Amino acid sequence: MNLPEKNIPVHHLTSEEFQLSTLQTGHPENFNDIHRHNFFEIIWFGEVQENSSLELDFESHKLRNGQICIIAPGQVFNMKLRGEKGYVMAVTREIFKEACAIESILTGGTIPFSLDSESEKTCKSIISLIEQEYHGPLRLDLLKTYLRAFCIIIAEQINLQDSLQKDRQRIQELIILIEEYYTIHKDTDFYADKIKISSHHLNDIVRLSRATTVKKMIAQRLLLEAKRELSFGALTVKEVAFKLGFSDASYFSRFFKKHTGQSPDGFKSGNG
């Protein structure tokens, strides 16, 4: 639904620089169909319903328990509350900029993201302190300090999840590259150069996500193709070796036996 900007109401922070409320109270000025803010809003969804979702810049995001969303000034936001529980912090641009130094959040907020259990525990403690202060002495400097602590923790989570997303993309890229080049390039450096990271970093990513190494991934692909050719092809062992990029048939035989426990000839006759 593309509404002209002038028709989208803008909500303002009026009497306070910092407001804390809960989703249970369902502040009508914060959740009233489609709207924009002239301030930053941090929403922490403690408990959501099965069909809970929000719209941010006309894109719908399904919600899960414990997720946090940061809405930047000017972003178009829409959510109908259905009994969700959680916290809402409305913060002026000036205060939020003091608390959070991540440029991407300052300019575009964040879509809903999750916290790991340790970070969630820490953030719960910080929110509890914010709540006590907000409903008690209301010392703005102390609220700013707590908010900064909260932002440090969630920024770490955002950076970590961005990093994991990049790593998943790199693994996909590596799989595609191996499929294309495994018979020509059998060294990790080639693939690392193509992905534009160091060999050490690439191996770290592969080790963490797949519990293996780049070299072993290439070897597995070579073995799969070797077994296919030896089982169903009409090529000799020597021809299979050359087809798979081995300059020496005896080296191919050693490679095959090391990984399978069988010689290529033995495997071929056993599957012939």
Results as ranks from 00 to 15, higher is better:
residue 149 A to L: 09
residue 149 A to W: 06
residue 147 L to P: 00
residue 10 V to C: 09
residue 224 L to Q: 15
residue 172 Q to D: 13
residue 175 I to N: 09
residue 262 Q to F: 05
residue 15 S to N: 13
residue 221 R to T: 13
residue 215 K to T: 12
residue 23 L to R: 04
residue 97 K to F: 03
residue 236 T to I: 02
residue 157 Q to C: 03
residue 20 L to R: 04
residue 255 F to V: 05
residue 227 K to W: 01
residue 55 E to D: 12
residue 209 S to M: 11
residue 258 K to V: 06
residue 230 L to R: 03
residue 74 G to L: 02
residue 204 D to K: 14
residue 188 T to C: 06
residue 134 Y to D: 07
residue 15 S to A: 12
residue 9 P to L: 06
residue 203 N to R: 01
residue 127 I to H: 02
residue 206 V to M: 01
residue 173 E to P: 01
residue 223 L to A: 09
residue 191 Y to I: 03
residue 107 T to F: 07
residue 37 H to A: 06
residue 226 A to E: 04
residue 63 L to H: 06
residue 247 S to D: 14
residue 89 M to P: 00
residue 241 A to P: 01
residue 120 E to W: 09
residue 19 Q to W: 03
residue 3 L to F: 12
residue 185 H to E: 14
residue 263 S to Y: 01
residue 116 D to K: 13
residue 116 D to G: 08
residue 219 A to W: 00
residue 130 I to Q: 00
residue 249 A to P: 11
residue 118 E to F: 08
residue 252 F to C: 05
residue 178 I to L: 04
residue 272 G to L: 12
residue 100 C to V: 07
residue 16 E to L: 10
residue 167 D to S: 12
residue 84 E to Q: 08
residue 245 G to I: 01
residue 169 Q to E: 15
residue 212 T to H: 03
residue 143 L to R: 03
residue 253 S to Q: 03
